[in-house]
């Protein structure tokens, strides 16, 4: 019960403060050397209060980072061959460097996921406005995010229509690969313009600020300071 209370408290921290904490987490994680990998285990526990994501989603997001990490990391195995001893275990330096890179890379992704997934898109916009990010940029970002959903919907409609007309064939035929994205773009654009015109008729003004900026409460600051103190204490205690 107490643990659940702590979780909920941390998830309510102001989005702007969460973004700052996230940057501190990332800088600390990516600079961790192989001999300090054990810090990361304790830092991971400090991530728990921020988490609200199911492990499956993490797995999917971490997969995106793997190819480039593996491409760079595998070269360590061939280049750094001198033996190195960490945690009473002697292995070629390249293996240690490879392990450290993989752990750092995946934890960086995990950190972003943990910090951001508890924030809604509106909350993120709020946090960005609090951090003085220009309104124009925040508006474009929100539009892009919203139209990703619209586009997914249109792709679904178009593939269904295509399947119904294709006489039992699966997938989009090679002949339609050019017209399919073009038509998708036109349909999405048409709907987006219609929505935008309707919004303008209702008095929407893109230049006027409509993204609210919520105030930072004292509890946000105290929660952030407690988290930072625990985070900074790890290297000193271990």
């Amino acid at each position: 019960m107490i643990f659940k209370g702590i979780l909920n408290r941390f998830r309510r921290v102001h989005p702007g403060i969460r973004l700052i904490l996230m940057v501190i987490w990332l800088i600390a994680v990516v600079q961790t050397k192989p001999e300090h990998l054990h810090y990361l285990i304790f830092w991971m526990f400090l991530q728990l209060p921020h988490m609200s994501v199911e492990p499956k989603k993490w797995g999917r997001q971490m997969l995106m980072a793997e190819p480039f990490l593996l491409f760079v990391g595998l070269s360590y195995l061939f280049v750094y061959r001198a033996p190195a001893t960490y945690y009473h275990l002697t292995l070629p330096e390249g293996i240690w460097a490879f392990i450290a890179l993989l752990v750092r890379g995946n934890l960086a992704v995990m950190g972003i996921t943990a910090f951001v997934n508890a924030i809604s898109m509106e909350g993120l916009a709020d946090g960005m406005r609090w951090l003085k990010v220009p309104e124009t940029f925040v508006l474009i970002m929100m539009q892009t995010y919203r139209y990703i959903g619209l586009m997914v919907q249109k792709v679904h409609q178009m593939t269904t229509a295509y399947r119904l007309r294709s006489g039992g064939k699966t997938g989009v035929h090679l002949d339609a690969w050019g017209s399919f994205p073009g038509q998708l773009l036109l349909l999405s654009l048409k709907q987006a313009e219609a929505t935008h015109e309707a919004m303008m008729l209702r008095g929407y003004n893109p230049a006027a600020s409509y993204v609210g900026i919520s105030k930072v409460q004292i509890s946000d600051l105290t929660d952030a300071i407690v988290w930072l103190l625990l985070f900074a204490a790890v290297p000193f205690v271990l």
Binding site: T136, L139, I140, Q143, T144, R146, Y147, I148, L150, M151, P181, L184, L185, S188, L189, A192, E193, T195, H196, M200, N205, P206, A207
Partner: peptide, 18 residues
């Protein structure tokens, strides 16, 4: 200038999503 070019906003959103 989004005030005078507001019609570009949906286009930017759609192109960004694309």
């Amino acid at each position: 200038d989004l005030q005078t070019n507001s019609e570009k906003l949906p286009l930017a959103g759609v192109m960004g999503a694309f």
